[in-house]
Design a protein around this nucleic acid. Sequence first.
DNA 1: TGTACATCAGTGAACGCGCGTTCACTGATGTAC
DNA 2: TGTACATCAGTGAACGCGCGTTCACTGATGTAC
Lengths: 212, 212
Amino acid sequence: MSTAAVADTRPYHHGDLRRALVDAAARILEREGPSALSLRAVAREAGVSPAAPYHHFKDKNELLEAVAHVGWEALGEAMLEVRQNGTDVQTLMTELGVAYVCFSQRHPALYRVMYDRSRDKDSLPEGMQDKEDSAYCLVRETFRKVAGPEVADVDIELATIAAWCAAHGLAEMSGFAQFNPLREALGGDEAFLRGVLSHLGSFGYRGHEPVK
Amino acid sequence: MSTAAVADTRPYHHGDLRRALVDAAARILEREGPSALSLRAVAREAGVSPAAPYHHFKDKNELLEAVAHVGWEALGEAMLEVRQNGTDVQTLMTELGVAYVCFSQRHPALYRVMYDRSRDKDSLPEGMQDKEDSAYCLVRETFRKVAGPEVADVDIELATIAAWCAAHGLAEMSGFAQFNPLREALGGDEAFLRGVLSHLGSFGYRGHEPVK
DNA sequence: TGTACATCAGTGAACGCGCGTTCACTGATGTAC
DNA sequence: TGTACATCAGTGAACGCGCGTTCACTGATGTAC
């Protein structure tokens, strides 16, 4: 009884407005897309005045940064889950790519914010290449295993970058209408993704070509 | 003498304002980036009132469409130039990729507008896959030559899409700061691009793998 | 060749809008004594 | 345990801004006769 009133009337202090704002931003992205993501809209969605966010973020930029950060974490988790299904190391690469692209398809607006911010900064999120448990490093380690110990680090790194670029490109383009006939011919979207990813560098491949 | 006055005073009617507006838009993109590209800014840059563009474009959307169209044409031309240097068909693929990425580096803001519009429409520019002389078809034909006649059309198409995705991904990511050490180690940006492009699918490669 | 007139391609002022940010404020919370 | 007070985290009104678009207009051009 005594708690009923408390549940009804929102307290003046929110408790964890910072997180609530980031969540609200994510909801707006899912619902209305990146162009609707204004500071005011986020505050509105969180049920708070337009000035409130300034107690938690220096400016709009910093809020977007936090949103993107959450996105990168989620993308990393989605990719790390693939590891569980202990298949052979060859198909693992393709499955990582599929996981990457599927994430971008599930959260297209969030993915766009993530990359827009990266391009504005000309930088991937900090630490992505270094943190041992990052998705990027998982890809690199997978290449390492496939390649064997005699392959130079440079080549592993280049292959990792190439794979990451391909996944990003496919993430942005996989929905294009031009691919629909092919997608249907192959029996659905995932089959299409696997098809594309497994044809990376198909015919131009010249064996492992070390950097001189 | 009689023409001096004409040269000084701009005539009331512009002559080719449509083209002038698209040019102005391109200039703004080079100078200030995509976020500065408003209809009003374009009109200002072209030296014309904010209402003038409406005699040539239905709305802002249609103007951006025209800007993107010019961009795609230019990208196509840049790639078709590669054909001239009649090298072997293997390195041709890499060089096409380099041409693609270099274009995006020379015109980053324009490139961004091009792809932003494509994603909004979920579609590459119309006819890109069909027009015989398009860059996309050049890539496909190149794959065809490398692969030989016994390879199925589906596999050629998938390989083309994969290559295009990789080029797009690299175009958007090549400037990232994380890659600077590697870029310098390889001796410059073009070497870096060639390195990445030539490592596409390196170790995951399982030979040409036909779609069942 | 001249003239009337329709059409085209501009002008410039105005519209309403949502934005990011700032400001003085106030209610709630935590802490020192 | 109570109280004074600093600090924290909200409010809501206001700021100036640039935007896309519309409107009534006007100057220039082209055409029919």
